[in-house]
Design a protein around this nucleic acid. Structure first.
Length: 238
DNA sequence: CGGCTTTGACCCGCGC
DNA sequence: GCGCGGGTCAAAGCCG
């Protein structure tokens, strides 16, 4: 259900989720859907790209490697900037980030810092709360604090691309003005609160928008399998 | 039987 | 204040 064995042509573009505009780069490579799909910011994804591109694209290997390198540093840079600007509260991020923060993340700094602090402490909240209190806290967190989010636009037959992590679907919603429902997934790993949303583009149903929210606090679930093949993905933590 | 998906209900933020 | 829409919950059902 999660993937097929067919080779899928994938057009990824990395962009600010809310603006839905490609801001960094686009690339078009044949991407076997059985392989882990790269979530932004993962070392793993970039290894996978750099491993795949030389053999699959018409570009010289060196420029492909440079491309992967660029993609990687850009992703890391953006995440770092995002974290920094969230912590410091200004200046650090670029134009898009500050725009993003002011216009779309208008949450109290205390709560943002809280969230980041707890993430640094190991990602989990280990407080013992009553059920209702826990629920309230959950609800509050869900409304007020958002993890950094990044999107991939992917041309693919399959909705859910295998990114190496194990996801559990927790909701599906028909979004207004779209024919295709949006699906909500959560990482099944304990203490890992990463979520992803999967939806198809209304204008072009062949395009799948995958939005990742948060950072994994663990390695991919299929790390062991993958490590058996050197051309495939190896461990990472993002 | 455990893990996963489905799906209606619910909650909250936001715009008017 | 109200209604709409997005995001989440949780019970029920499904499947291996």
């Amino acid at each position: 259900m999660m993937s097929t064995t067919s080779q899928t042509s994938v057009n990824h573009s990395l962009f600010e989720e809310q603006d839905q505009i490609p801001t960094q780069m686009e690339f078009n490579i044949p991407f076997p859907s059985t392989q882990a799909f790269p979530p932004l910011g993962c070392h793993q994804s970039l290894k996978s790209i750099s491993a795949l591109v030389p053999s699959l694209s018409s570009e010289p290997a060196s420029s492909s490697a440079n491309f992967a390198e660029t993609l990687f540093s850009t992703a890391v840079q953006r995440q770092r900037e995002d974290l920094t600007s969230s912590l410091i509260g200004g200046g650090g991020g670029g134009q898009l980030l500050s725009l993003n923060r002011s216009r779309l993340n208008p949450w109290a700094w205390e709560e943002v810092t809280d969230c980041l602090m707890s993430k640094r402490m190991g990602g989990g909240d280990n407080h013992h709360l009553g059920v209702s209190a826990m629920k309230m806290k959950k609800m509050k967190a869900r409304r007020k604090v958002r993890e950094p989010r990044f999107c991939f636009k992917t041309m693919s037959d399959v909705d859910v691309l295998d990114d190496g992590y194990k996801w559990r679907k927790y909701g599906q919603k028909v979004v207004k003005n779209t024919q295709h429902p949006r699906s909500y997934y959560r990482c099944t790993q304990d203490n890992c609160r990463v979520k992803k949303r999967v939806e198809r583009l209304a204008e072009d149903p062949r395009m799948v928008i995958t939005t990742y929210e948060g950072r994994h606090v663990h390695s991919p679930s299929n790390e062991l399998e993958d490590s058996q093949s050197p051309s495939e993905l190896s461990s990472f933590l993002w």
